[in-house]
Computed example of a mutant assay.
Amino acid sequence: MLIDHFPVYGIRVRTPRLELRLPAPEELAELAELAMDGIHGPDLMPFGTPWSELPPADRARRVMQRHWRTLAELKADAWALNLVVFLDGRPVGVQEIEADDFAIQRQVTSESWLGLRHQGRGIGTEMRAAMLHLAFAGLGADEAVSVGYMDNHASLRVSRKLGYAENGTSRGISRGKLALEQRFRLSREAWEQHRTVEATIEGLEPCLPLLGAEAAA
């Protein structure tokens, strides 16, 4: 079976409303179609690479290609999991968790997107909380970091709500122009103090060597 050779397909992170996991092929196609319907309004660009402004068909293909690429490149010292977020069994977005040299640094970063029609319901906060539970409770991370453009108020609100502390600013590029970024850091202690979303993890233990997290088991 696929899971015997690539056990990350068995990871399940569940919260009261959501399930985060890797998708089956037809679920990935449904996720791509969700991206075709839009991810943000025209006045916002939350990504350094403006893939979300591609024509709908190209946008859908990009979602699928990124998913396959991150799986193909997964190795213990550099990995990313594009976990699809399911609500009532249907994909509503992506919550990515990634790390370099996790066995040494014990640090994760994250990116995410949520289908436009599912925004404004607290799903973004809940799916980030699920990712943090996977990082800290599951993998034994020491800290999580996040970066958001200053005008991406929804993302910055999620970070602050979940206990991230501001950790300086940096200069990025958005749509070919200078865009200031707010950097955040969340320690294990701050995560424990601010966690309010109940979460469970299933199928992680066989994946620990693949993610450089054996010592955290």
Score class of each variant (00 low, 15 high):
Lys161Ala: 05
Pro25Met: 07
His153Arg: 13
Asp77Cys: 01
Pro91Met: 12
Gly124Phe: 07
Val84Lys: 06
Gly140Asn: 07
Asn152Gln: 03
Asp100Ser: 14
Ala72Cys: 08
Glu192Leu: 13
Leu186Val: 03
His5Met: 06
Ala29Trp: 00
Ser52Lys: 04
Ala165Ile: 03
Ala32Asp: 04
Leu54Gly: 03
Gly138Asn: 08
Thr70Ala: 12
Ser187Phe: 02
Met45Gly: 10
Met150His: 10
Ala29Pro: 01
Asp77Val: 02
Glu143Ala: 13
Glu202Leu: 12
Leu132Tyr: 00
Pro42Trp: 08
Thr49Cys: 04
Val13Trp: 05
Leu178Lys: 07
Asp37Ala: 15
Ala99Asp: 05
Met131Asn: 09
Arg121Thr: 07
Ala24Ser: 11
Arg185Glu: 00
Arg61Lys: 14
Leu34His: 02
Asp58Phe: 07
Gly163His: 01
Ile201Trp: 14
Val145Lys: 07
Leu22Thr: 09
Gln107Tyr: 00
Gln193Tyr: 00
Ser187Leu: 02
Ala154Asn: 06
Arg66Pro: 00
Leu208Val: 02
Ala215Leu: 14
Thr196Pro: 00
Asp142Val: 01
Arg90Cys: 09
Pro16Met: 09
His40Met: 10
Glu19Cys: 07
Val145Leu: 08
Phe47Pro: 05
Glu26Asp: 12
Ile39Arg: 08
Leu28Asn: 09
Gly163Lys: 02
Asp151Ser: 06
Glu30Cys: 10
Glu19Tyr: 01
Ala35Leu: 05
Pro46Val: 08
Leu83Pro: 12
Arg62Cys: 05
Pro55Val: 05
Pro55Met: 06
Glu98Thr: 10
Phe136Leu: 06
Val13Ala: 12
Gly148Asp: 15
Pro50Met: 13
Ala72Tyr: 10
Gly212Tyr: 04
Gln193Val: 04
Val84Asp: 09
Arg14Ala: 15
Met127His: 11
Arg157Asn: 12
Gly140Ile: 03
Gln107Lys: 14
Tyr164Phe: 15
Ala103Ser: 13
Asp151Asn: 13
Ile11Tyr: 05
Pro209Cys: 11
Gly168Asn: 03
Asp4Gln: 09
Ser159Met: 11
Glu181Pro: 00
Glu126Asp: 10
Ile11Pro: 01
Leu31Met: 14
Gly138His: 05
Val63Cys: 05
Trp191Val: 01
Arg121Gln: 15
Ala165Trp: 05
Leu116Val: 09
Ala213Phe: 08
Glu53Ile: 14
Lys75Tyr: 00
Ile11Asn: 04
Arg171Gln: 11
Glu202Val: 15
Val13Arg: 11
Leu156Val: 07
Gly10Val: 06
Asp77Glu: 14
Leu87Glu: 11
Ala60Pro: 04
Ser174Tyr: 04
Met64Pro: 01
Ala199Cys: 15
Ala179Ser: 13
Pro46Ser: 08
Pro56Ile: 03
Ala78Asp: 15
Leu208Asp: 02
Phe6Tyr: 09
Ala165Phe: 00
Asp151Glu: 12
Glu33Cys: 07
Tyr164Val: 02
Phe102Cys: 05
Phe136Val: 07
Ala24Phe: 12
Thr70Asn: 14
Asp43Met: 06
Thr109Val: 12
Pro7Asp: 06
Pro209Thr: 11
Ala213Trp: 07
Ala129Ile: 00
Leu34Gly: 02
Ile97Gln: 07
Cys207Thr: 13
Leu31Thr: 06
Ile3Arg: 12
Ile3Asp: 13
Ile123Phe: 15
Tyr149Leu: 07
Ala130Glu: 07
